[in-house]
Amino acid sequence: MAESTILLIVATIVNALVLSSMYILLALGFTFLFNIMGILNFAHGVIYMIGAYICFYMATVVGINQWLALLISVAVVGLFGIFMERFIFRPFFGNINSIIVVCIGLITVLVNAVAISQPYNVQVTPAFVQGILKVGIVSLSWQRIVFFLIGVSLLILVLLFINKTKQGLQMRAVAQDLEGAILQGINVHFVSALACVIACALAATAGSLMGSYLSLTPYMGNDIMIKVLEILVLGGIGSINGVLFAGLIVGTLDAVLPIWLSGTATQAIMMLIIIVILLFKPQGLFGKEVRA
């Protein structure tokens, strides 16, 4: 095999892993919100975008260390999650059309606010990690490896949280039977707020990292939202296993297809694949009967 082919394969694999892990972080948060509150947070992409810009702003304009900027972004966006739960999701519980409207309102405000306040040129958050790892002929940037590791470890942390802690158990209870959970005295609003904070914090993390991996635009949330929706539909909405599996598929396709195809064709092929799969498995690959 030619040297260049090997390099391409390795680079593609690493790219696929990074993209997958970031997509999964977002889709996982979205799934949390869906399972626990029965809402589809179409503004999740915009939360990701805001996370990216806060980190960028802190790291460049304010000029603090990138990692600190990341933490600040996660904290700010996490707090915003509490606000979202109280004022956006709770009033429209179970009303999908109204949720769409509120989310569009939120997207319009945030995207335009960022678009107006930012200069019109390509912006990239400074690299979090410098340096290159050399293994034989292959060289990889440390940053990619670190991003992938961050993604995986956050994923494990979140899964441990839901499966091993008392709050996690309560979350699963609320997801399975809301009224049953209320009758056990579980504070559903607290659990929902917690889910929102986790979901938003994960989105902010992914956004902050991707701001350095790719570049920032006010519309970066829209593109990633399509990816998240693809993952959810493919994996079966509400299923965490589905998110992991479909996230890997979508991330991989996203890294592989652009080698041969243009951006829009990649999108079209991906959607075609998903439509065909859904025609055979109408609930997605891991889906069950759904609420919404």
Binding site: R172, A173, E179, L183
Partner: peptide
């Protein structure tokens, strides 16, 4: 009524 257990737990 109807128990409302958490079926998957």
């Amino acid at each position: 009524e109807g128990r409302r257990l958490f079926p998957a737990l």
